[in-house]
Each structure stands twice: as structure tokens, then as C-alpha cells.
Simulated assay, not measured.
Amino acid sequence: MARRSKRNTPESLRVELIKLLTKFEEKLLDENLREQVKGLVPANHLLRDLGSSLIKDEDATSARDRILSYLRKYPGMLLDGDELMVVAGISEYARRIRELRVQMGWPILAGKAIKDMLVEGEVIDSASDSNRIKTDTYFLVQDQQDKEAAFRWNLANEIRKKKISVKDKIITYLRENVGKEINGEELKYLANDKSEWARRVRELRTEDGWPVATRQSGRPELKVGVYVLEENRQAEVHDRKIPDPVRVETLERDHFSCKVCGWNYSNRRAEDKIRNLLELHHIEHHASGGKNELNNLITLCNVCHDDVHRGNKSNQELKELIAVG
């Protein structure tokens, strides 16, 4: 059975470790390899005890608790696996991280998922260069536990086994969780850990017209690594052709709010079950030659968008709304 770390005051452990290492000089002079190795065993144990004792939380009695405590002190920051190994006091820290993610719902991204997202244009605030991300790099998306995560992971496991494409697995999963914040690790798992998952999510939004929102695609309040299928329906074919940079530029100009009623994601109310997403509308219809350009697009909530399509706002009125700024 693996030895459990024994926590104590860091200073007393440091002093004891120095004594052991000082005494180890005798082992080096003896040149007996086995005795040298055996002489380092207590020092190795003490070093692990010292690392695990750095976490002051009284409730952090297990390796998993200590890892979580450390992650929660640095949400939104890239942490090396070696750091988590030190505070865990065990070498099998990666398994404990998976338990935190799958069983307890902590939104922890690992290096592979982070790199996949960076390649597809998603921005992680503390990481601009994907080359410095390692497999054992970890990132706590937000200091908030997701109580439904265990259920979703079971669902993801069922969908993962289906003999369908990666894109179909992802959209099936998202449609089962409309409006919910989905972690990138969940989507990577659905794709059997293949790096294409992030590209498929982008294609679902830009080519297939599914309203999959991210922080980079026009929902700045979302955390890095979070995906939300805003509504269980695809956009009209012509609306799928708006390039992401133009889409974001339009949303920024309109302050991420409906230009007719002022609705946005930050002022939405739980009792309002009708308004649930922002859409871009072509003032001069795309089918009639209207271009995917800033001066031909306006941000509308889904309710006002439907109202405009019923003819209750003229093109001139819409142009005046975007001219106001």
C-alpha cells in the first residue's frame, strides 16, 4: 500500500529533512548503492510530508482535498502538474484531478484540451503560446462546483460509445444540455480525446449554424473553456456565413445588447423564459444580396428578431438604430 503523507508544521519537517540530508554524506562516502538508495527513502517521505503540509486548510486531509485547495487559490491560472504533485504528497495526483472533475464537478482543464482550444482561436488569458502548455498543465476555469457534472459525464460516456462522427457526438451532447455551461474537457472526452474536437465545435457554429457560444464568439461573461448551446435550433443557411470577426465586431458595436429592446445576457431575468439569446440580423437580406458587413448587421434578441421578420420594423428604422451607437 502506498504511504500516506504525514502532515506537520513545515518548519519542523524542513529541519528534520536537513538533518537527514546532512547525514546522507556518510552514505555517499560508503559507496554502497543500495545503502545510498535506502538512505534517501526517509528523505523522500519527508519531502512529500513537507509539500502536503504547505496547505494550511484543516479539512484538506486527503491528497484530493489538498489539490483542490491549491487549485482554488489560483483559479484562471495555468498550473504545472509538479506543483499539484508537491501539495498532494503522492505521485498519482492526475487520478485525483480526474475524480475532482468527473465525480465532483470541478471545471478543471488539462493541457491537451487547452492546446486544442488555443489552436482553434479560443484565448486563455494566461496562455498566448500553445508551445508552453504541457500535458500535465492544469487550469481551474472558475472557483465554482458544478453539481450536475457527474450526471453529464455519465451521459457523455454513453454518447462516446456510439458509432457516429465526432461532430455528431458533440452536437448530440450539447442538445441534451441546451443552455448549460459545458466544459471543454467534456467535449474532448466525447471525441475520444482526439484533438479535432475544438475544430468540430467551431464548425458546428460557423458552418452548421448551431448557436454555440463561447467567450470569444460574443459571450464575454463566459469563462474560458466554457461552451453553451443557446438554443436547440440551427440558424438560417444565409446567417451561417457571417465570419466570426464580423460577428464579434457587430456585437461590440451594439454593446452585446438587442438594439430594439436592450435585452442582454447580463440583465436577463429567470422569469423571462422567452428571450434567451442574441442573433445578428441582415438589414438588407442576405438572400437579396445584403452583405456580411458591419453596416448591414444589427444585434437583436430572438424575440425582436422574429418581430422584425414579421415586418414590424422597416430597414430604415433598423439603420437609424445602429446609427445612434
Rank of each mutant, 00 (worst) to 15 (best):
R3G: 06
S5Q: 01
L20H: 06
K23P: 07
L28W: 06
H45P: 05
L46S: 04
L50Y: 13
K56W: 02
D57L: 14
L71C: 11
L71Q: 04
E83G: 15
V86W: 08
A88P: 07
G89N: 03
G89A: 11
E92S: 11
E99D: 13
V102P: 00
A110T: 06
A113W: 02
L118R: 08
E122L: 15
V123P: 05
I133S: 02
I133E: 03
Q144G: 09
R152D: 03
W153C: 04
N154V: 12
N154P: 14
N157S: 15
I159F: 06
T172G: 00
K180T: 03
E186T: 07
K188E: 06
Y189E: 01
A191Q: 09
A191C: 12
A198C: 12
V201H: 02
G209Y: 06
G218T: 09
P220M: 01
K223E: 10
G225W: 00
V226M: 09
K241S: 12
C258M: 05
C258R: 00
K259P: 01
V260H: 13
R269S: 12
A270L: 15
E271F: 11
L278Q: 03
C301K: 04
N302K: 00
V308R: 01
G311V: 07
N312P: 05
K313E: 10
K319V: 04
V324G: 10
